[in-house]
Structures are given as structure tokens and as C-alpha cells.
């Protein structure tokens, strides 16, 4: 019953918000048609469409097919004994496939080892930052739905297929400040249809991430995602919110590839898992940090 109530509440808030944003985007597009000369979008604010665990505002050009391999190794607490987690059990892997239907719309499917999540996602670049600051920031919407693929026994006695579903929505506001610095702020919402009795179904979060570009192909990446503890939306009187997710890494990119290697304090890969379940705590040091990498390959059709 509570689930139904939450879902209808979500619809009431999210639908008008989306309509408003789409309307705003159409109005901007009309203005752009009449004003000349055209203020073009800034050049590559980010080198790829992912940034460690987050999405960037970048959407590859229409007709681009992308294959991603995302990997999180085990924790680094054993040091050199298992080469800082590279050879320890507990790794998580996601294989993803993206296809750009439009220059500003990409759809994707991915399969993650943790919980055998199958996720279906849409990313829409609502506004692109322009060179002359006609539009000072890029605004991107990202949403996904994931299906937990584990055995149904995991979901308890009142099993229903929809118990497997989880959702994630994010608004990303980004700005390329100059050729070496791009930053993004995110506002996120995650919902799980089925959670343990002492947890909430919903969580809001905020985040900041960015890129410091120090050569034409190389950059430093960083991210910080913080789940928020909000009593007014909680179903519990006392509960522990998931731990914040920090990450720092290095990215090198070419025409068809991006390679990121990083240290993070979360291994969920899927954003809703990170915001809802992350228990790795940066303050514990090596025991809660792990190495990871992302490789992308692009094909243009």
C-alpha cells in the first residue's frame, strides 16, 4: 500500500516537472532559430559520457553505438598480498551497451554482476552550454529502471515480479569553465519497490563531480555523491542512510576509446545501488576503498 502511495506521489511531482523542462527546452530552441549568428555548444566539456560512477552531460552523436566495461575490484585492505584488491574476491562488473537515437538522446542496456541487475536507461541532453554563454550551463536528465535478477527466494514470501524493480532519476547541471575545468552538480532520486523492513523505499541525493584536463588526452576525474537523510520522506523513525560515494581517477581518451582508472568508496556501479546500499566508508581508509576501471568503445553508424 505504501508502495502505491509513493508511486502516485512520484508521478504527481515528476510528470509536471518533466513537462515544464521540455517546454523550456522547446522555447530555447525557437529562440536559437531566430537569433543569428548561432551560438554553438561548447567543445567537449567531458571526454566521455561516464565519469567514474556518474553520467556526464555528453551524448555521443546520433547513430553512435557504445560498449562499456565497468569494473570494481575488491577492497584494498590486504595491501600487496592481493595487489590492493586486484586479486581478491568481491569484484563487480557491468557490461553496458548504449545507442544514440538522436544527437541529444541515448538509450542503454546493461547487466551488472551485483544482484544481476538488468538496467534500461535513457539520457536526454536538455540544454547544451554555449560558447557565448547564451546558455551558461548544460542540463541533462538521466533515468533508469533496473530489474534485480536474483532467485525469487531473496524477495521473501509475498513474491511479486515487480519487487525486483528499482528506479533512478537524476538532473545534471554542468558547466565547462575553461579548457581545463568542467564541473557538474547533480540532484538524484532512487526508489526500490522492495527493501528490508528497516529501510526506506526512497532516497534523495546530491552530488558534485568534474574533470581537470591537463593534456589534450588526459584528465583527472573526481566525484562525490551524498545520499540525504530526510526525516519528512522517511518511513522509519531511525535509520542509517547509505554512505557517501567518493572517487578520484585518471582518464585518457582517443577518437574511439575512453579509459578511466580510479579509486572509489562504492562498488554498486548502478547509481540506485550506490545511493541506497553503499556501506563503504571513506573514513575507514584502505579497508573501504577499491580500485576500478571503465573502458568504452565507440562505433559510428
Amino acid at each position: 500500500m505504501k508502495n502505491l502511495k509513493n508511486t502516485s506521489c512520484m508521478k504527481k511531482i515528476i510528470l509536471p516537472l518533466l513537462l515544464l523542462l521540455f517546454g523550456f527546452s522547446a522555447a530555447i530552441a525557437q529562440e536559437a532559430e531566430t537569433d543569428k549568428p548561432i551560438d554553438k555548444p561548447v567543445r567537449s566539456p567531458f571526454a566521455s559520457d561516464v565519469l567514474i560512477d556518474n553520467q556526464t552531460g555528453v551524448v555521443p552523436v546520433k547513430g553512435t553505438f557504445e560498449w562499456l566495461i565497468q569494473h570494481r575490484f575488491g577492497t584494498m585492505d590486504n595491501g600487496i598480498k592481493d595487489v590492493f584488491g586486484l586479486y581478491t574476491p568481491g569484484a563487480n562488473i557491468r557490461m553496458g551497451f548504449n545507442y544514440s537515437l538522436l544527437d541529444n538522446l541515448v538509450v542503454s542496456y546493461g547487466l551488472t554482476m551485483k544482484n544481476m541487475y538488468s538496467d534500461f536507461a535513457v539520457k536526454y541532453a536538455l540544454l547544451e552550454q554555449t560558447r557565448e554563454n547564451t546558455i551558461p550551463v548544460a542540463v541533462t536528465l538521466y533515468g533508469n529502471m533496473a530489474i534485480d535478477g536474483r532467485n525469487e527466494k531473496v524477495f521473501g514470501v509475498d513474491y511479486n515480479f515487480t519487487n525486483r524493480f528499482s528506479y533512478f532519476g537524476q538532473v545534471i547541471v554542468g558547466r565547462k569553465f575553461n579548457d581545463w575545468l568542467s564541473l557538474q552538480a547533480t540532484g538524484s532520486f532512487a526508489h526500490y519497490n522492495s527493501v528490508a523492513a528497516d529501510m526506506n523505499h526512497d532516497v534523495f541525493g546530491v552530488g558534485i563531480n568534474g574533470r581537470i584536463n591537463f593534456s589534450p588526452q588526459s584528465s583527472v576525474l573526481f566525484q562525490c555523491d551524498i545520499p540525504l537523510k530526510i526525516q519528512s520522506i522517511s518511513e522509519q523513525l531511525d535509520w542509517d542512510v547509505a554512505k557517501p560515494n567518493f572517487g578520484i581517477g585518471y582518464e585518457v581518451s582517443t577518437s574511439t576509446h575512453a579509459f578511466q582508472i580510479f579509486v572509489t568508496s562504492s562498488n554498486g556501479i548502478l547509481p540506485q545501488d550506490n545511493y541506497m546500499y553503499n556501506q563503504f566508508d571513506l573514513t575507514n581508509g584502505f579497508s573501504d576503498l577499491m580500485l576500478g576501471f571503465t573502458i568504452t568503445r565507440l562505433w559510428n553508424f
Binding site: R43, D179, S215, P216, Q217, S253, T254, S255
Partner: peptide, 13 residues
């Protein structure tokens, strides 16, 4: 400079 950046990404290899 823009050309140099694009060269590094797409052509240099």
C-alpha cells in the same frame, strides 16, 4: 589550439 587538441585525440595515434 583547437586543431591541436583534435589532432591529439583523433589523429596522433
Amino acid at each position: 589550439q583547437v586543431g591541436k587538441m583534435l589532432w591529439a585525440k583523433h589523429c596522433k595515434s
